[in-house]
Amino acid sequence: MNEQLSLYGKTFTSRLLVGTALYPSPAVMRQSVAASGAEIITLSLRRQSPDQQQGKILWDYIRESGCQLLPNTAGCKTPREAIALAEMSREIFQTDWLKLEVIGDDYNLQPDPYGLIEAARELVGRGFKVLPYCTDDLVVCRKLLDVGCEVLMPWGAPIGTGQGLLNRYNLQTLRERLADVPLIIDAGIGAPSQAAEAMEMGFDAVLLNTAIAKAQNPALMAQSFKLAVEAGRNACVAGLMVKRQTASPSTPTLDMPFWQQVDKVPQD
């Protein structure tokens, strides 16, 4: 019943994607990736002079995790930069999967929707499997689908803030209107409860980095997110109850006189 996550024709059991940056050490990163159960991990080349392959030791170490690599274009501000980095990543990591980031604002790392759509169109044309990091704007999301993206990754909140799902209305709209598109909540998730909430709302997966990498015990936090994502997904499939205004006891209180039961009803 709980079918697998399917992205660009590839299926995955885990619905948690994790980043590989910001950990206290590469060893802790790899333990945490293992504990998260993630089958897709993102990694960045931006500042590592990829053309010289000088970060190779670490890349090989990340590759050994056996996960599907999802190179990103973190830090790129124009389509041109993002496309150049994407090509370099494809060559180095031998994968056409790409988390596309085109950043429009330096402080909160907000995606630039115009640059993003332009870069996505070009990269899809060049055969990339593009997973764009985007805002929660329905029209932007539609345009990304129009240019050939098969998966979208709307933000929950700005990168690294841990604020959770800031605009539930927009996110709910996306989920309802783009019912058949795999949607992954990327960025802004700070606590397992927030990840569970995203999954309960019907999102297909969650991608995060900071909340795990910056935890005092990253591997334990990774495991917590794994469980939360599973719980949220299961809850979504199982069917959540609809919230009610009044408290209703789950077992009948036959021995309680009816006027006392009335008192228990919240007064507002």
């Binding site: 590592q48 000088q54 970060g55």
Partner: peptide
């Protein structure tokens, strides 16, 4: 702190 064994001069960024 950049994960690269790169000894080239400091970057503008």
């Amino acid at each position: 702190e950049i994960e690269s064994e790169d000894m080239s001069p400091i970057s503008v960024r």
